[in-house]
Simulated assay, not measured.
Amino acid sequence: MECTGQNSPLGNQTALVEFILIGFSDVPNLQGFLFGIFLIIYIIILMGNSLIIVITKVDPTLQTPMYFFLGNFSFLEICYVSVTLPRLLADLCRQYGNISFLACAIQMYFFLILADTECFILTAMAYDRYVAICNPLLYPVIMNSRLCIQLAAVCWTTAIPIHTLFISVLFTSAFCGCNQLKHFFCDVPPVVQLVCGDTFMIEILIYVIATIVVTVPFALILVSYGKIISTILKLPSATGRAKAFSTCSSHLMVVTLFFGSGIIVYFRPKSTHSSGMDKFFSLFYTILTPVFNPIIYCLRNKDVMVALGKFLQKWTVL
């Protein structure tokens, strides 16, 4: 069934039991190629982030708050991408994307929780850099192991009650008529488009939640880096300024990729939403950020590169 337009409460009232993920069916000749590309990307994400987790755990020089949060971030990236990519690979392989109503709700639930956790962990990493650069003498006292564990716990748990409420509201709404999701996973915008009738309250809830879990963390990161940059520019040594900037640039690149694409998708007016553009920008915050994470943090961080070299040398000898 070809779907046209927004669902109407006056249309077909048959309750939906499944959705059809359209995914990349508009390019049928590229299904095999896309499967190969996404499989390679998934393997790189798993291997790269797993390697960061291991070296931040075993190398004594990386037992600092910055690398504690980096290890958390890498583990999160593995979980985050595993919510969407295996399903996408299966759909590309079998060339159809039927997903049950319950499976769609579960996928969206874990995707949103992990996406919001990423926002919070990136904020915690920005705070760590702020303390390290703006209050270096107090850094060991402020960023002690107890605070790091508490911050990590808050990051991992805060989104759970928020999205338990949201998923309950969204998936108890009436769905009727069209069941085609013009996306490669159960993201919020395409699912909301299939809700019957007025979605005003759902959209208000989306904006409120997005403000809490995206806008506020992003604003805190901007404030932190405003103060960091101001402090760095006051350093008398050019070498010191370069070193301080190098410890922050990797994090800023990841923040820009993740928040930039997410804000474009979730804060655009509904009238400007396009399935093609939504899929394009979704690739950034669902796939490209996790694959760039190990590359950015390894290639732009001398400590990680040295630790990685020692780790690989040790295992090569064995």
Rank of each mutant, 00 (worst) to 15 (best):
M1E: 03
T4P: 04
G5V: 03
S8D: 14
Q13G: 05
I20E: 13
L21P: 05
G23H: 04
G23S: 09
G23K: 04
S25F: 00
S25M: 05
V27Y: 15
Q31H: 06
Q31R: 09
G32T: 01
I37H: 03
L39H: 02
I41L: 08
I43D: 07
G48N: 13
N49H: 11
I53R: 14
D59V: 09
T61Q: 15
Q63D: 12
P65A: 10
P65I: 08
Y67D: 14
N72L: 12
F73M: 12
S82N: 09
V83R: 00
P86L: 00
L88R: 04
L89G: 03
A90Q: 06
L92W: 03
R94V: 13
Y96A: 08
N98T: 05
N98L: 10
F101P: 11
L102Q: 11
I106D: 06
I106V: 13
L112F: 10
L112H: 07
L114P: 09
A115H: 09
D116Q: 13
F120T: 00
I121L: 13
T123N: 00
A124H: 04
Y127S: 04
Y130W: 12
A132H: 04
I133Y: 07
I133D: 00
N135M: 10
L137F: 14
L138M: 12
P140C: 00
V141W: 11
N144A: 01
S145D: 11
S145H: 12
C148K: 07
C148Q: 06
Q150A: 05
I162Y: 12
I167T: 14
L170Q: 07
T172N: 15
S173W: 05
C176F: 03
G177I: 02
C178D: 06
L181I: 11
K182D: 05
F184C: 05
C186D: 09
V188T: 13
V192C: 10
V195Y: 12
D198H: 06
T211V: 01
V214R: 13
T215R: 03
V216Q: 03
A219M: 06
I221P: 02
S224Q: 01
Y225R: 03
I229L: 14
I229A: 06
S237F: 09
S237V: 08
A238V: 03
A242T: 02
F245D: 08
C248A: 01
S249L: 15
H251P: 01
M253G: 03
V255Q: 10
T256W: 06
G260H: 08
I263Q: 05
K270R: 11
H273G: 02
S274G: 11
G276I: 02
M277Y: 14
F280G: 04
F280Q: 01
F280Y: 07
P294G: 15
I296G: 00
N301C: 15
V304A: 07
A307M: 12
K310W: 15
F311G: 00
L312M: 14
L312E: 03
L318G: 09
